[in-house]
Simulated assay, not measured.
Amino acid sequence: MNIDLSGKTALVSGSTLGIGFAIAKGLADCGAAVVLNGRKQQAVDEAVAALKKGFPGAEVRGVAADLGTAQGCAALVRAEPSVDILVNNLGIYGPQDFFEIPDDEWTRFFDVNVLSGVRLSRAYLPSMLEKNWGRVIFISSESGLNIPADMIHYGFTKTANLSIARGLAKRMAGSGVTVNSVLPGPTMSEGVEAMLREAAERSGRSIEETGVAFVKENRSSSLLQRPATVEEVANMVVYTASPQASATTGAALRVDGGVVDSIA
């Protein structure tokens, strides 16, 4: 399958590292002009330089903006008024006991993980409708279906992503604009590596071995029995953004390694 995104502009929120950067690489490799985003200008500049180095012919630019705020989303839209592909990837996570999570932390997770995608979708979908072509993809998580007891506030936001994407797909019904969710499972991103590093040092195992042990202990239903790579997740997103995925909309597409124990 030859995915050609030439002539399309793709925006990936939270894309200076991890899954977001891998998605940006995959989209650039298929010919899309790619807009990277992060909170800090230096991180954005470094990511843009790295992507241009990997794909010398690609059109790559970046916008530094804190999308956890209305002002940051507005600044991004002013800088990039129209895109063809929107990947709402931005997200924060971290284990914390329910009884120790204050109101402002619930609000912070909601603002970053949910409202950022709401605001950007609201800004970019009208122009997609005008062109009768567009792709909006929310990066949810298997944690949106299997709510983790130690990250209830995170799981709640990922369930919200699923609801919004399904509702927006209905709102776009009959058009050439699709809206979907992609649900990664445990994925070996830089953030997860950092989370596992202390355990790896204590055990004397490699990061990869520690990742496998983490999945077996904490996601025992995994059929893959290891973390996914960021590229494996990005592959699903790139396909979902492609012209070939024109009949896929309103879907929750799992890249969870079979963690969710469901036949549907």
Rank of each mutant, 00 (worst) to 15 (best):
N2Y: 13
F55S: 11
A194W: 04
S163Q: 13
P148E: 09
M151W: 05
T240A: 15
A64L: 01
E231H: 13
V60L: 11
V230S: 13
V48R: 02
N161R: 00
G68I: 11
Y93P: 01
L90Q: 13
I147S: 02
G185E: 06
T187F: 05
W106Q: 06
L5R: 08
G174D: 12
F21R: 14
Y154V: 00
A247F: 15
C73A: 13
L11H: 02
A234P: 03
Y239M: 09
I139H: 02
G20N: 13
G26W: 08
F138S: 07
V259R: 00
V179G: 06
D150K: 12
A160N: 07
V77P: 15
V114R: 04
G18Y: 05
V255N: 13
D150W: 14
V77F: 11
I147G: 08
G185I: 10
G134T: 12
A58S: 11
A50L: 07
V215H: 01
R39M: 08
P186T: 14
K8S: 14
D150Y: 13
A74R: 13
I23V: 15
G257N: 07
S203E: 03
T178K: 15
T178V: 05
D97V: 05
V255M: 08
K25F: 01
F138T: 02
V114H: 01
R166Q: 14
N2R: 12
S221F: 06
G204I: 00
G62K: 12
D4G: 03
R135N: 10
L115I: 02
S15W: 09
A74F: 02
A241T: 05
A169W: 03
Q41W: 04
P56R: 07
V35L: 12
D66A: 08
D29T: 14
A49W: 09
R108V: 09
S262Y: 03
R197S: 11
K216I: 03
P81H: 04
I207H: 00
A24F: 03
L253C: 03
A247G: 02
V179W: 09
T16A: 05
E130V: 15
V118M: 12
I263M: 11
R166E: 12
P186N: 10
V215C: 01
Q96R: 15
G167H: 10
S163M: 11
S163T: 11
T210W: 00
Y154M: 01
R197T: 06
M128R: 08
G7L: 07
G20L: 10
V237T: 06
E209I: 02
S181V: 03
G155W: 10
P186S: 13
A32E: 07
D256Q: 04
V35D: 08
I164M: 15
A234C: 04
Y154L: 00
L168S: 05
L5P: 10
T229I: 07
R202C: 06
V83T: 11
Q42C: 01
E198M: 12
I23T: 09
A65V: 11
Q96C: 04
A252F: 13
D29I: 07
A213L: 03
V192G: 00
S181Q: 06
G31A: 06
T229W: 12
R78P: 01
E59L: 07
V112K: 11
G38C: 04
I263E: 10
V12N: 09
G7M: 09
P148N: 07
P148K: 05
G211W: 00
S203L: 01
A10G: 10
K52I: 09
S82N: 08
V87H: 06
K25A: 13
G72C: 00
P95S: 10
L223E: 15
